[in-house]
Amino acid sequence: MVELILSEAAHGEPAGALWSSPSWWVALAMTIFLVVLIWKKAPAAIGAMLDGKIAAIAKQLSEAEQLRLDAESLKAEYEAKLARAAKEADEMRDRATAEAEALVAKAKDDATALIARRKQMAEDRIAAAEAGALAEVRTAAAKAATDAAAKLIADKHDAKADKALIDNAIAAVVKG
Rank of each mutant, 00 (worst) to 15 (best):
A17V: 10
A29P: 00
I46T: 04
I46W: 06
L6D: 08
K41E: 13
A44F: 04
L37V: 00
L6M: 09
S21E: 05
P22Y: 00
M30R: 09
A29M: 00
A44E: 09
P43A: 08
I32C: 06
W25C: 07
L4W: 00
M49K: 14
W39H: 09
P22W: 01
A15T: 07
A48Q: 15
L50S: 11
V2R: 06
I5D: 10
V26M: 08
P22M: 01
A48I: 08
A27K: 12
V36C: 02
S23A: 14
V36M: 05
V2A: 11
A10V: 13
A27C: 03
K41P: 04
W25A: 09
L50T: 13
A9W: 09
A44S: 07
V2F: 08
L34M: 07
A15Y: 05
K40R: 10
L34S: 07
M49V: 11
V26K: 09
A9Y: 12
L28C: 09
K40Q: 13
V26P: 02
V35Q: 04
K41D: 14
A17D: 13
A17Y: 07
M49T: 13
L50P: 04
P14F: 10
K40E: 02
T31K: 02
M30F: 02
V36I: 10
E8T: 15
E13S: 11
E3H: 01
A29V: 02
W25V: 12
A10Y: 14
A15Q: 09
W24Y: 09
I32E: 04
L50V: 15
E8Q: 07
S7M: 14
K40L: 09
W24M: 08
I38C: 03
